[in-house]
Structure formats: C-alpha cells, structure tokens
Amino acid sequence: MSTPVDAAVDLRAGEPAAAAPPSRRRRFSSGVREAGLAYVLLVPAFLVFSVFVFYPFLRNFYLGFFSTPPFPGQPKHYVGIDQYRDVLSSTDFLDSLKVTITFAIITVPIGIALGILLAVLAHQKLQGIGIYRTFFSSTVATSVAVASVIFGTLLSPQVGLLQGIQTEPSILQNPDPIININLPVIRSFIPSVALVAVAVTTIWQNLGLSFILMSAGLQAVPDDLQEAAEIDGAGPWSRFWHVTLPLLSPTIFFAFVVGSIFAFQTFGQIDLLTPRGGPLKTTNVLTYYIYDQLQFAKNDGVAAVLAIALFGVTLILTLIQFRFLERRVSYER
C-alpha cells in the first residue's frame, strides 16, 4: 500500500511534462459544450412554442382576470381571481364537467375494448383477413363531419334507418337519462339518450385508430409466447388474459391516456349532431361550453376561465392515470 507521501513522490516522478511548454487548456469541458449545443438547437422549437403555445396560454390565463362587459364597446374591468371562483363553482360549469367526464367514461374504455376485440379477431392467419383489416381500420379515413352526417342521417326521425327503435322526441333531441337509477350521485352521471348517441358516433369514428393501435401492439407480442402458453396448458381465454393483455398493456395505457385527452377535447360531432349543447344542455361538454361562451354569449373572460379549467382537468386526469394505471403496465420485453 502506498502512503500519501509515496503518492506524492509518484506524482512528481511521473510529471516530466511540467518542463514542457503548457498546452492551451480547453475553456470548457466537453459536457458543458455539448449541453450548450443542445440549448442552441432547442431555440427554434422554443420560439415556435413560445409564439403559438406559451404566450397564448399565459395571455388566456390573464384574460380570465377580466370581466367582459354586457355590451360591446364598454371597457373590460379587472375582477381578478373572483371570475375563476364564480365560473368554476357555477352549476353550468359543474354540469358541463359531468357531461364531459361521462362522455369520456363511455367512449374511451368501450373504444379500446372494441379495438382489442377487432385486433384479436383480425390477428389470424386466414385467407382474406386483409379485407377485414381494411374494413376495421377504415374509419380512420373518415372525418368527424362525414361520421356525423352518416350518424345524423341514421338517427334522423324522418329518414333515419334507425327510426324503428325511435320514440318521440328524436334520439338526438332526447334529454332523458338512458336508464333510470335513483341514486343521487350516480344519477347525475347517467348520460342522456342524446349523449349516448353522440358517444356511439365517436366510438365508431375512433374505432379504426383503436384497431390499428391494438393490432400494432399485438404484432409485437411474440408468437412463441402464445405457443409456450398453449403448451403450458393455457386455454384461449387464459392465454389472452395472462399473456396477450399484459404484453399489450403499454399500448392500452397509451391509448387510454391519449384517448382520454381526445375525449375531453371532442367538439365536432357534438356541434354537428346536437347543436347548442343538446337537449337541456345534456351534451354540453366543456369544449362546446367554451365555444358557446365565446361565439354566442360573447363572453371571452368566462371562455378563458373555462379553457384554463379544461387544461387543468386534462392535466390532473393524465397525472392520475400515470400515477395509478402505469404501475399495472409491464414494459418488459
């Protein structure tokens, strides 16, 4: 073992370079220079985001502090956080939030479950299966407008193909809850017939994307794992439950998070199928409520508050999903 003194001797002995002219030392270490370059390369993206995201967001937040006058031309006046408090505690907002959450609860899980079902069905080596895959994914190529027109026609009380199952008023105008349950808390989340109709349209339209995502996830599950499970004595259901589903869980989680965000931002089919928030405002989702405040009530202060609320709700929901769902996801391969 060398003592510190030995080490010092060693150092001196191993330092003939001290006599040589000192080389120019680099001013920064390579790590710092790399980080510097990274920041430089980030600048363009940052500028774009600043102009189109960060600034409007902050500006919108600021706008929420001002009450919009009842008549155009009058000056706005600053009311501060009061407007946030008033709007966020209003019945209209809470009703709209319930409608939005209900809509997401209907569309997201059913959309994913149907996507998995179709993907599993189409994940076979059969002749002509490509035709089915094309059918199943085709709704990706339809726009919201087209989907809404198709379903609007189907559900039309005059010419709709589904008018046989239909009572007065028309499905899209029916504000009655789809089932009658007399439990106060649950009752307020029971969707109206009209909301269910819009949700069905949405599920149909998103099914193609859900199918494609789940199919891609299934492709990544190695065949020999299925075969191993089969030889290990697992039946089809057990194989699906114990092998396919866990290995699909990253895809499902992704679809769940993204699907929820999409659901919270749904606007087109709501506006086209059930204008003005639907019968008794039962399809008045948050995005539509914002639009309504801006377009018809001309109240941009309230709309700004609602927009911030939508952002907050989406953020919290996503954080909750990561916190509670991601632990059930297995990323191992």
Partner: peptide, 8 residues
C-alpha cells in the same frame, strides 16, 4: 430456442 419466457 428463444426460451419464450413470459417477460411480465
């Protein structure tokens, strides 16, 4: 050959 262990 790949062992086909269940990764999860």
């Amino acid at each position: 050959q790949s062992y086909a262990l269940y990764p999860h």
